[in-house]
Design a protein around this nucleic acid. Sequence first.
RNA 1: GGCGGGUUGCCCGAGAGGCCAAUGGGAUCUGACUGUAAAUCAGACGCGGAAUCGCUACGGGAGUUCGAAUCUCUCACCCGCCA
Length: 465
Amino acid sequence: MRYVHDALMRRRGIGEGNRACRAARPNGPGPVKTGVSSSGLERHRPDVALFVPVERPPFSFAVTARLRGSGGRAGLISTPHGAIRTPAFIPVGTAAAVKGVTPEQMAALGAQGLLANAYHLYLRPGAGVVQAAGGLGAFMNWPGPTFTDSGGFQVLSLGAGFKKVLAMGTAGLADDEVIAKRSQRLALVDDDGVTFRSHLDGSTHRFTPEVSMGVQHQLGADIIFAFDECTTLMNTRGYQEASLDRTTAWAKRCLAEHARLTAAEPSQPYQALYGVVQGAQFEDLRKRAASDLVQMRAGGQAFDGYGIGGALEKENLAAIVGWVCSVLPEAKPRHLLGISEVDDLFAAVAAGADTFDCVAPSRSARHGAVYSPEGRYNVTRAIYRNDFTPLDPECDCYTCASYSRAYVHHLLRARELLGYTLATIHNERFIVRLVDSMRAAIESGGDATFERLRDNFLARYSGRS
RNA sequence: GGCGGGUUGCCCGAGAGGCCAAUGGGAUCUGACUGUAAAUCAGACGCGGAAUCGCUACGGGAGUUCGAAUCUCUCACCCGCCA
């Protein structure tokens, strides 16, 4: 039996935009006060008494405003654990935690949802543990909407991309410089699924579409993704075609398994399944992939939304998202996987993407890279040793309200855990707020407002103002 | 007083005649990071703007040798053990 943290949700206002955060700093610096932290800190573990049984609420999505000159839109996703106003950035907590930051802090900085990873949680602590805890949200004390990635990214990061830098912009390198030898990979793909060797203990594990769906159903996130093969842009066209065929076939199996599991668990909150569009940088492949997923049915069910995946480059990101969104139905949400750089977000929102997730804000923060309206900079640089201004003087986050660059610089250099926390809070807030501002622009002013926001923001961010 | 060990670049610490401007850590400086094998990784790190070049360097000084951080003598300081 599973319950929704209904009372908690209402109390904290999670899942309904970022009210908590906007209320966080009425006037300048000072301790952040929110209704969230005060109530949240009273509980250290799931408080079962607060849970109330609910009927299985439907998953839904509605477009609330559109840009005329592009595919950009604003909307509202409703899940059993609350709503998400889109466009929205969904921070990543791979192992059921945003590294170094509590759920209360994530709520306070305006996160509307969190994304975890099925493969990582399957390996540790095991999907059964999360299920026994009452699902991902209950396990990590996050009452709002949750997502899980399928493990498809690990097909790349532990497979062809193992130990390689697969970040965007590696297109000029030879294949063998970028794609790991088969013998050294921890993930090997075949048409039926993927054999992983655990990065934790070397043990062998088999992921198939059915396994991924089973794991994700145990984890119980509100939005789950079909198991796909994430490819690199280095692969040949021939490989991309074969891979896409595989991903499409897997999508169908995911849909069927998801329908079966959903029917078998009528008392559970409904989990929305997103199909993932691959096809690399090829227009025909991306459009065909999207079209196939849109038409796909299994067990009387279609996908509830769509993910857009793959290693995208800045140069082709807008085009790829545009091609895909031109084929996808207006009435269903689109999630762009793994993207959060400022210019990429503007491009993708304009092209029609609704939600985003990315590890960059948290990982970069831990490595000292901090976002500001003037661009990204490294606080660990020597020039910040005596800089007592906030990380970003215009930011409304907890960190910027009370701490200086010099302090965060010191903490990071001293490897004090608090440094990771403070820097991550700021970076996550910066990106969440950026995407929120895009939504506000679309909702309030339409094309002109959105474009003005974009042009001004990017000019300043990239130092061209 | 006797015997033994030691002194290496900002710090720790390898090196026992040429391949040594000197392994490796740390510190320092800089950069990267897009569905997290990531509190990680990469580069720089004696001076000369760079150099297959020059200079200065392995406690000080003097030697041996074609050639010394490495061998000898000596001085200084440090650390043991015995008195």
